[in-house]
Design a protein around this nucleic acid. Structure first.
Lengths: 204, 204
DNA sequence: GATAAAACAGACTAATGGGTTTGGTTTTTT
DNA sequence: AAAAAACCAAACCCATTAGTCTGTTTTATC
């Protein structure tokens, strides 16, 4: 009983290539035809599977982006180890991924937020919700860190979380054109410095 | 001899409205007709003054954006006062401007960098150059701060500068949808905390 | 106030892109 | 083998958009 297995495979292929091209060239600058040419598929194929370009894009957000945000930005910082180390390593990994021309999904979000802001409220909702998921998980990781004695009790977890996200999104913007390796190195030094100051001074 | 006074006035009006709409809806999502309708002007007028949409946009970068980056982000941090205070106040001002739905020009740059990255190298060059101007000036402000005894000698000025820019660009992304006031408040607390640690501990 | 140049209006063109339709082929089920 | 479901190709439709062309109005100059 694999009646929909091919359907799913085809849709998935379209979504993967779609995300790649939307991310690289922007949503509005990437035509459906562009994606189909890349895949040697036809318009008929596309509109058999998806109602519209917009619905197609939303399906990408739901089935690819959200999952990747979880696996790259959220799961690595779960658990009861020192959140400061967890977060530092997670950011380092994400930036290294970015450096090798793959996409780290925090920046994917930022790109699309910039593009759709003001022009498409429905898509913006999905994007903001996903970003919010990251933020919420950062906050609770920090709070858990307080509870477990790793993080200073006086720290404003919400403030730190949005500051981490901000700096990360920003450095990724700079990396698109600047010398990525040098920027990553410097950024990691600064964020380490910043996060180290959050540590609980009582406990080792 | 005011043969070009009207010409300049009209061009300027087009540029101001153009920047506003490009910034709000994106370059590719804003048609020349959209801008002209807003101004009650015609195609003939537009192409009388500008060779193309792209040239029009570049003229906006040159005549509006660069100047504003200077007056909002560079001039305020010049001088020989404590650069940590200068930078803090400058960022605060920029974020307050942003909160009142006007545009702070750091974010204008970021928006366009995101939009044109990968699709238009010529425009990217202008945008990156402008961002670079900001960065270079931040670095030299910090170095001057070292010289004048305000900033710790061990600080990596390049690292701090790109970290400041990063966090600023990032927080602006978050502000587009989140509660701007709360984000600004938190951000300023964090950046103050971060910058205070740069201060020279010897001198008061 | 005639004339020339500058500034502007608006219909038109060509190309692009989202989406539809038609007309098929392959795969699965019975 | 026959019917139905899943899948695919490409011509076609319609709205939009950057850019052109031809003319008209405004403005400066003598």
């Amino acid at each position: 009983m694999q009646k929909s297995t091919k359907r799913i495979a085809t849709m998935h292929k379209m979504q993967v290539t779609g995300l790649e091209m939307f991310y690289k060239n922007g949503y509005y600058s990437t035509s459906v035809d562009d994606i189909l040419k890349e895949l040697n598929l036809s318009k008929g194929a596309f509109y058999y599977h998806f109602k519209s370009k917009e619905e197609f894009f939303i399906s990408i957000l739901q089935s690819l982006v959200v999952k990747k945000v979880y696996s790259m930005l959220i799961e690595p910082i779960e658990g009861h180890d020192n959140p400061i180390d967890l977060i530092t390593n997670c950011l380092e990994d994400a930036l290294q991924t970015a450096e090798h021309n793959e996409y780290d999904y925090g920046f994917v979000l930022q790109n699309f937020i910039t593009e759709f802001n003001g022009s498409n409220p429905e898509i913006m909702k999905y994007l903001n919700d996903t970003l919010k998921i990251w933020e919420v998980n950062l906050v609770s990781t920090l709070q858990r860190g307080k509870f477990n004695g790793y993080v200073d009790r006086h720290i404003d977890c919400e403030g730190v979380a949005s500051y981490i996200i901000s700096s990360f999104l920003g450095i990724r913007t700079l990396m698109v054109e600047g010398s990525a390796t040098a920027l990553r190195y410097r950024y990691m030094q600064q964020i380490r410095f910043y996060l180290r100051a959050m540590a609980n001074k009582q406990t080792a």
